[in-house]
Simulated assay, not measured.
Amino acid sequence: MGFVEELKSKNFSIYAQWAGILSIPFLFIAGGLAFISFVIFAVIAWILAFILVFIEIPFCLKICPTSPNFDAFIRIFENNLFRTVGYVVFAVVTFAFVSKSVFYVLPGLSLAIAGICYGIAALKHQSHASSKLTGGTGV
């Protein structure tokens, strides 16, 4: 199944994965812009982006050496419900810094969209699926 077929599958877990992947560069860019003026947000944004790389791109867990503790932490997010909670928390943390700069809205918005899509997938009882393009199993 190709990328277009995955998007046509109406599996909200796939939509959420791509929203999460989209939020990774947004977090890196916002962290870079904030590094000079607001170091706390920059560090938090980069840590969130690093965690999201391993959560959303299964191929990275296969090729990168990680510790058993980190692998156990990432496995917490295998369920759509836990991913919903995680993304909502990440979005709230990001939106908490919006009063400092408008640049933080885009990462927070993409994290919130991913959380909403994972929430819809959990409510519809859709099993978690990750795109074949990122090393996942597909739909």
Score class of each variant (00 low, 15 high):
Ala91Asn: 02
Gly31Lys: 05
Ile24Leu: 04
Val93Gly: 06
Phe41Asp: 06
Trp18Leu: 11
Gly86Tyr: 00
Leu52Ile: 14
Tyr15Ser: 02
Ile14Val: 14
Ala91Met: 02
Ala16Gln: 12
Phe77Asn: 08
Arg83Gly: 01
Ile74Trp: 01
Gly108Glu: 01
Ile63Gly: 08
Leu22His: 01
Trp46Ile: 12
Asn80Ser: 03
Val105Leu: 13
Pro65His: 07
Phe70Tyr: 12
Ile74Phe: 00
Leu81Glu: 13
Pro58Tyr: 03
Ile36Asn: 13
Gly108Met: 01
Cys60Val: 11
Val98Pro: 05
Asp71Ala: 00
Gln17Leu: 13
Phe82Ala: 02
Leu61Thr: 12
Gln17Trp: 11
Ala72Thr: 02
Lys100Thr: 11
Ala45Asp: 06
Ile57Asn: 00
Pro107Arg: 11
Glu56Tyr: 15
Ser99Gly: 15
Leu33Pro: 05
Ala19Lys: 04
Tyr104Trp: 09
Leu22Gln: 08
Val89Arg: 07
Ala16Asp: 03
Ala42Ser: 14
Ile36Arg: 08
Ala72Glu: 01
Leu81Gly: 12
Val53Asn: 04
Ile51Ser: 04
Phe103Pro: 10
Trp18Ser: 07
Cys64Gly: 04
Ala45Leu: 06
Phe97Pro: 04
Asn79Cys: 06
Arg75Gln: 12
Phe103Gln: 05
Pro107Asp: 12
Gly32Arg: 10
Gly32Asp: 08
Ile36Glu: 11
Glu78Pro: 04
Pro107Cys: 06
Phe41Met: 14
Tyr104Pro: 09
Ser23Leu: 11
Ala42Gln: 09
Thr84Pro: 10
Ala16His: 05
Val93Tyr: 05
Asn79Ala: 13
Phe41Gly: 03
Phe82Trp: 14
Ser99Ala: 15
Val92Trp: 13
Phe59Glu: 15
Val53Asp: 09
Asn69Pro: 00
Asn79Leu: 05
Ala91Val: 03
Val85Trp: 02
Thr94Gly: 09
Ile21Leu: 10
Ala49Gln: 07
Ile57Leu: 08
Thr66Asn: 00
Val85Phe: 10
Phe73Asn: 00
Ile63Met: 09
Ala49Val: 04
Ile51Tyr: 06
Ile74His: 00
Leu48Asp: 13
Phe90Thr: 11
Trp46Asp: 08
Ser67Val: 08
Phe82Cys: 05
Ile36Ala: 15
Val53Gly: 02
Ala91Cys: 09
Gly20Cys: 06
Val53Cys: 06
Tyr15Glu: 02
Ile40Met: 08
Glu56Ser: 11
Ser101Pro: 12
Ile40Lys: 05
Tyr15Trp: 10
Ala34Gln: 05
Ile44Asp: 10
Ile74Gln: 01
Pro25Asp: 11
Ile76Asn: 05
Pro68Ile: 00
Lys62Ile: 13
Val98Phe: 10
Phe50Leu: 07
Pro68Lys: 01
Val88Asn: 09
Ile63Val: 15
Ser37Thr: 15
Cys64Ala: 03
Phe103Asp: 08
Pro68Tyr: 00
Tyr87Ile: 07
Arg83Trp: 01
Ala45Asn: 09
Phe73Ala: 03
Val102Glu: 14
Cys60Thr: 15
Val92Met: 15
Val89Ile: 15
Glu56Cys: 13
